[in-house]
Amino acid sequence: MSTTLKRIKEYIDFKGIRISTFEKSIGISNGSFGGQLKKNKTIGVDKLESILRLYPDLSAEWVLTGNGTMLKDTESYEQTIESLRKVIRAQEKTIAVLERFIPVKQ
Rank of each mutant, 00 (worst) to 15 (best):
A60C: 02
K39C: 06
E61L: 11
D57E: 15
S59Q: 05
L84D: 01
S32T: 14
S50K: 14
K47I: 05
K39I: 01
I8R: 01
I17M: 07
G44I: 00
N67H: 11
S32G: 01
E23K: 01
S59Y: 05
P103H: 08
P103D: 10
L54G: 08
F101T: 09
V87T: 11
D13N: 13
T3S: 14
K39F: 04
E49P: 00
K41C: 08
G35E: 11
V97E: 15
K6Y: 08
V63N: 02
D46I: 07
K105Q: 13
I95F: 08
L48V: 05
G35S: 15
G27T: 05
L48W: 04
N67I: 06
T80F: 13
D46V: 08
S76E: 15
Q106T: 10
S29Q: 07
S20R: 09
S20L: 06
D13F: 02
L58W: 01
L37K: 02
I51C: 03
I43P: 02
G44W: 00
V45F: 13
Y11H: 05
S25F: 01
R18Q: 14
G66M: 03
E23C: 03
I19V: 14
R53H: 13
I8H: 03
Q79A: 14
K15L: 10
Y77M: 12
E75P: 00
R100P: 00
I28N: 01
D13A: 08
T4D: 02
G66I: 03
F101G: 15
S83Q: 11
I51Q: 02
K47E: 07
V104P: 00
Q79S: 11
D46F: 07
K38T: 07
N30A: 06
G44P: 00
G68N: 06
T74F: 08
V45Q: 15
S59V: 02
L84W: 02
W62C: 01
T65Q: 04
I102H: 10
S83F: 11
F14V: 00
D57I: 13
K38G: 00
K24W: 03
K93Y: 06
R18S: 14
N30V: 02
K9T: 01
K86A: 11
I26G: 02
G35Y: 12
I19C: 04
I17S: 04
G35Q: 13
E99F: 04
S29T: 07
D13I: 08
G68P: 04
T21F: 11
K41F: 09
L5Y: 02
P103L: 09
E82W: 04
